[in-house]
Simulated assay, not measured.
Amino acid sequence: MIPNKRFISLDVFRGLIICLMIIVNTPGSHDTSFALLQHANWNGFTLADLVFPSFLFAVGNALFFSMQKWKTMTQGQVLAKIGKRTLLLFLLGYLLYWFPFFETNTQGHIVFKSFAGTRIMGVLQRIALCYGIASLLIYYLKPKGALIVSAIILVAYPGLLFWLGDPGNKLNMVGNAVTKFDLWLLGPDHMNHGEVVPFEPEGILSTLPAITNVVAGYLVGWYIQTAGKTKRMLLRLIATGAGLTFLGLCWNYVIPINKNLWTSSFVVHSTGLDCLLLAAIIYIADFLNITRWTWFFEVFGKNALFIYLLSEVAAILLRATHLYKWIFNHIFTMAGMYTGSFLFAIWFMLMCWLTGYILDKRKIYIRV
């Protein structure tokens, strides 16, 4: 029988990742954001690159606790629950890219924004697919089976990249298997256009290895809960984290650490760092019992997905009304372009946190 006593550190971890995600996504200007808070151009790894895989890892942590409730439910009820949450998350992600649903045409008239040019995949869409598939793997194959499938995916995925990619461009932005698959299935109009060519950083094929980030989060959550608050648990978590981080760096010489393609080396490296980060939080909060700082991140953790959605919608509206640029240029640039850009991100994050704090005070927790 697995005890269901929740570690405060798991909520803090999720809240810390949401906090960092908002800071990375909403600097005053992406052109003057500190290098650590910018994603690697292609191969490589920065702090910003740790955010998304860590969120998937946190989804896996939370999945462990959700699945404890499924034990009293029928198979049909479980499948309905998984399907409903998967579809809702995917739909919310799609609507986020379609928002604000209207645009100005070449004649200056406000018209309904066409479906034809709306991006299909994205952050929430990937979370939805990874959650849905990981849930089914764990539910039907149990943790051991899900771990075996995850290992097979990580070993097979580089083979797909080398087999399906264009000769000479197998791991480049143009000609890689991920882009080719998205162009074939989605079409260029439904892909991200933030680069010089249509490229989807949350592509369909590259979602396959991302599933393992969720499975890893589940397995770590399961182990922590099963082992309890012991030094042995903490040491094993640290050893696992260090081992995976090192393995990812070694694998980098075979297939580069690359968030855009979500390479296997990227998955292993980021999972190792997540284990180390979670171990550090557990040691401080659960072993040393130093918790005065944790409440700030718990506010984010208790309404994680809602606060993320709020941050994205608020940023879209501020940019659409040009307030985003005005606030940065007229207030925060007084601290300098780079420092001002960072302070703007901190301010924006705090505004989102304040909303979460008000909801927490009123015991309002919005589940997706």
Rank of each mutant, 00 (worst) to 15 (best):
L136M: 10
N172Y: 14
F102E: 08
Q125H: 05
A151G: 11
N169A: 13
L92P: 04
A151I: 02
T86W: 03
S150K: 02
P167Q: 11
I133V: 15
T74S: 15
G117C: 07
L171Q: 08
Y140W: 14
Y140K: 06
L136E: 10
Y131L: 09
G117F: 05
V155T: 06
A80L: 11
A116N: 12
T118A: 08
L147R: 13
I152W: 06
G132Q: 07
K144G: 06
L87M: 10
I110V: 15
T106H: 14
G165E: 05
G76E: 10
V78W: 00
Y140H: 04
K170F: 13
L161D: 01
I133S: 03
Q107H: 14
L136G: 01
V174R: 14
G108R: 02
L171I: 08
G93Q: 06
F162L: 11
Y97R: 12
G108I: 00
I82M: 01
L124H: 02
L164P: 05
P143N: 04
K170R: 14
F99G: 08
F99K: 05
A146N: 01
N169C: 12
L160H: 04
S135F: 00
G108T: 00
R126I: 02
T86F: 05
V111M: 08
S135P: 07
L147S: 06
G93W: 07
L136Y: 06
T118D: 08
L124D: 06
Y140Q: 05
L92H: 05
A116D: 11
R85F: 00
A116C: 07
W163C: 07
Y97Q: 12
I110K: 13
L89T: 01
W98A: 01
F102K: 12
P143S: 01
Y157V: 07
Y97L: 10
Y157N: 02
Q125T: 15
K142R: 12
A134C: 06
R126Q: 02
D166A: 15
Y157T: 04
M121D: 08
T86Q: 03
I152N: 06
T72C: 14
Y140D: 03
V174E: 15
L124N: 10
D166G: 07
F101R: 04
T106A: 15
G76F: 07
Y140P: 02
L88M: 04
P167D: 09
V174F: 15
G132V: 14
V149R: 01
L154S: 09
K113N: 08
K170G: 14
G83M: 02
L96I: 01
V123P: 00
Q75C: 14
A151E: 03
A146R: 07
I133D: 03
Y131G: 08
A128I: 00
Q125M: 06
E103N: 11
V123R: 01
P158V: 04
W163Y: 13
Y140L: 09
M121Y: 05
L141C: 09
P143G: 00
L141S: 13
M121K: 09
Y94I: 15
G108P: 02
P167T: 13
W98F: 13
G132Y: 12
L160P: 02
G159Q: 08
L147Y: 14
D166W: 06
L129D: 09
